[in-house]
Structures are given as C-alpha cells and as structure tokens.
Computed example of a mutant assay.
Amino acid sequence: MRAIWLVVGLVLLALNLRAAITGVPPVLGELREEFGLSGVEVSVLTTLPELCVGLFSALAPALARRIGTEAAITAALVVLTAGLLLRAVPGRAALFAGTVLAGAGVATGNVLVPAVVKHAFPGRAGTFTGLAMMLMSVSGAAAAGLAVPLEQAGGWRLALVAWAVPALVAALAWGPLTRRRAAEPVQQAAGSLLREPLAWSVMVFMGMASLMFYT
C-alpha cells in the first residue's frame, strides 16, 4: 500500500515542479500593465525562480536529513502552494515574494525526486526517473499553454493561482507519508561528491539540459 501511495505522491510531486515557472511568461504583459513593472523588474521576476533553484537546491539535502525526505517534500509543496497563492495578492511585493517562495518549493522538490525514486524503487529507478521527467515536461507545457485561456477566463490572478490547487493536493498526499521518518536524500557528503568524476559528468549533462529548457 505504501508503495502505491509513493507512486501517487511521486506523480503529483512531478506535476508541480514546472507549472509555477512556465505559467508566468504568457501573462507578463498583464503583470507589467497591472504593476507598472519596468523592463528590469520583468527580467528579475522571470529570473527569480531559476536563482531560487540554484540557491535552495543546495539546502534541500540538509533539510531532508534533518526532518526526513517525506517531510521535506511535504514542506516544499506547502511552501510552493503558499507562494502561488501569495502571487495573486494585490501588490508588487507579494508578486515577488510569492515567486521566491514558489521557486524555493520547486527547488527542494527537484532535488528530492531522485532521492525518493532511489529509496522507494531501487530496482526500477530508471523507469520512475523517466516518468518524473516526462511529467515535469508535460506540466510545464500545460501551464504555459493554459495560461492565456485562464487569463481570458478570469484574469491574470486566476492564471497564476490555479496551480496552487494541484500543489495543495500533492501536499495533502505527501502528508501521511511523513509519519515514518525516512531521511536519506543523499548518502554521500557534498564535499566528497565534488571529487567524483561521475558527479561532475551528471552536473554538466543536467546543466546543459536545463539550459536548453529555460532558454
């Protein structure tokens, strides 16, 4: 039963790791008009999620070691939900603060997906990693594609806040899994990873893939 719940949780987690980022660019015009954003501020708004991914990704393993992988994922999804809701609050500060929170949630979830796969499905890591990557791409494309229809139906706030619903559902799904503390997101210390040629190869490969995606 726990294995099935983990599969459901993994699917829901993966579906929420791109929408918060890709759903913003299609409504930038409306955001710029609403808040009177300058070109620099628009650039900062769209860059913040990537900066958060770089910053909070380094903190995610320590958090998971401290409170457990499942609890860390639940916390990340709660933060992501809060960030998505905050972006719909009137005010420029809320827009930027919500973007930072959403970026922090996405970053933490990104890092912990491989940990969940390796721990829960060690014999089928490739299959479930591929599934998670596919779901991330699908959700990212869906958020970008649905942003304008949602904006036309209910304004830019609906386009941004709509993705808080699946994020909250995912957080509720992961909540019961935190009852059993399973803290093993990274078996190797960060310092030793820097001396591993394979770690550098993976970093370069994933960095190039991310470069293509975000560009």
Rank of each mutant, 00 (worst) to 15 (best):
M1T: 15
A3W: 09
V7P: 01
L12Y: 06
L12P: 12
L12I: 08
L13T: 12
L17Y: 10
L17A: 11
A20T: 09
A20R: 07
I21A: 02
T22N: 07
V24T: 10
V24F: 02
L28M: 15
E34M: 08
V40G: 06
L45Q: 02
P49K: 02
G54S: 02
F56A: 01
A58N: 03
A58W: 05
A60T: 11
L63A: 10
I67Q: 04
A71K: 07
A71T: 13
L77P: 07
T81H: 02
T81E: 01
G83N: 05
L85R: 12
F96Y: 11
G98W: 09
A102W: 11
G103S: 12
A107W: 01
T108P: 08
G109R: 06
G109K: 08
V116E: 07
V116D: 07
T129C: 07
M133T: 15
S137N: 14
G140Y: 04
A141V: 14
P149I: 04
L150K: 11
G154P: 12
G155P: 11
G155E: 06
G155Y: 09
A159W: 05
A162Y: 01
R179Y: 01
E184P: 04
P185V: 00
Q188C: 09
L194C: 03
L194Q: 09
A199T: 07
S201K: 04
S201H: 03
M203G: 12
F205I: 06
A209R: 05
Y214S: 07
